[in-house]
Design a protein around this nucleic acid. Sequence first.
RNA 1: GGUCGGUUCGUCUAACGGUUAGGACACAAGAUUUUCAUUCUUGUAAUAGGAGUUCGAUUCUCCUACCGACUACCA
Length: 563
Amino acid sequence: MARQTRVRFAPSPTGPLHMGGVRTALYNYLYAKQNGGKFILRIEDTDSQRFVPGAEDYILESLAWCGIMPDEGIVQATGTDGQPAVDANGNPVYTIASEKSEKNPHAPYRQSERKPLYRQYAEQLIANGYAYYAFDSAEELSRLRAEAEANKQTFIYNYESRKTLKNSLTLPADEVKRLIENTDTWTIRFKIPEGQTVKMNDLIRGEMEVETNTLDDKVLWKAADQLPTYHLANIVDDHLMEITEVIRGAEWLPSLPLHYLLYKAFGWEDTMPRFAHLSLLLKPDGKGKLSKRDGDRLGFPVFPLKWTNPETGEISRGYREDGYYPEAFVNLLALLGWNPGTEQELFTLEELVPAFSLERVIKSGAKFNVEKAKWFNEQYLRRRTPQQLAAEFRPMLRDALTATTSYANTATVTQDLKFSDKYLAEVCALIKERAHFANEFWDISKALFTAPAAYDEADVKKFCTPDNLSHAEELHTLIAENSFPTFTDEETSETYKTECCEKIEELLTGYIKAKEWKMGQVMNTLRLFFTGNTRGLGISDIIYFIGKEETLYRIRKGLDSIK
RNA sequence: GGUCGGUUCGUCUAACGGUUAGGACACAAGAUUUUCAUUCUUGUAAUAGGAGUUCGAUUCUCCUACCGACUACCA
């Protein structure tokens, strides 16, 4: 009988979710959706020492931003007013589900809240001879480790060493009973079977084998905090939550034999999930897996969202705050370690669902490449409508104008212009192919909103020759004496702008050609007066947007300041 | 050190055991253009090394090298 596909993403709330973690979540999500199954979120917070406040919300917010919401394990939060919580945009705010419900039949989904559940499973293993109590103190064990290391050996708690250590296999029963009742630093360890070969299968990597004698007796449960370790909690919860496929990071590969053995010891082999281990995301340069430091060092985010360390106040940048679209982030993550087998590179989340397959996930680690990441964002930026871009640009424009001192100091016509949505949309349509990110819009288009505060010295030197200046003077007269159409909110014809620009260009180039001036010279002089340097927007586009009066003002101002 | 995994252009990657080893990013050149950018065209660039199996190996096997993960009462 085929079971319903149920996969889970099970992060530990020990800090901000890494982009590699988002990728793992994404692959789980895609797999679930493709198979008409459920994507479950479970919080693995069995390490009370490393709990970081805010990390859980961060995970939820990151997933929501990416559009990969869990089907199970979350519930809409309750606001201070007792009503379902929503954020500033009216979107629901989620939290981890603690109460059982139709949607969340396996609640709670935080392992810390499932605490009472695990001990019985550990005891069950002991009763069946698959585990034992261990009473060695942490100090004793670290001493043994240090000694072994001094002899260039490695101490492991295994089938051999357990025979000489303090545990329920070596101690008399009454002593074991006494220690369990009177001390609280003991643990329950898994008893790795001796001399067996564990044969495993991985959906991505294929067949693997490991000798049990190379494995160590992992701690499953700790009396000190009455909590399970990852291994126990993970297997028990995956079983209880009826997980069908475990898709997780490659750092778990060495634990796979233990997990196989655990399923066997519990007698859950029939329903054991299938496993898929994803390769790691690597540093763009050098060695090792991608870390927080790399982002700081190389200038790109490793986290989906900005994160402020609650203890140190240290801030880590995020893709969202850096101006990436979630679609671009998801797309680039999907292609980092997976490909569709075709040459298609651009996928929306919806398109990813049918295209995805675990079989096509790459075995080797992938180095993250910032340039490609920017390219993805650029592709999505270009797919946006001018109106959408204008809406994004509006608040940035407001901030920029407020911060621009030259704007406050120049008596320009544009100062009084109310930049309409139509104006912004037309500007965005013009500049979107020049940008990778919407946050570059102001830099690219500032000349369309304000006169330059200063002129680039090198450009002045190069283009403000006596000839060019006198030509600019003539063009000032030409523009003053001629009338031509420019931007207006009233005109809605789609071809209007093109027509305007053609007319402006005819006027200028016609005159320049007639005079036999060098186009590249005088045009650049004008551009310098319009924008402050000689790189960027086309002259006729600028004039179209700023209008005749402002055009004359800027040429006059340029001529006056250079002389 | 031990265990496990990995290795195709600088990067992400494609290639039933048979291809001039393909694409994308980046880079370079050219074309277009009033500058810059865009766009278009073209180019540089790879199977880690060595054995073996085979008519034939990027592909299968082994060895070496390198890289990585794991080696906690962390996940």
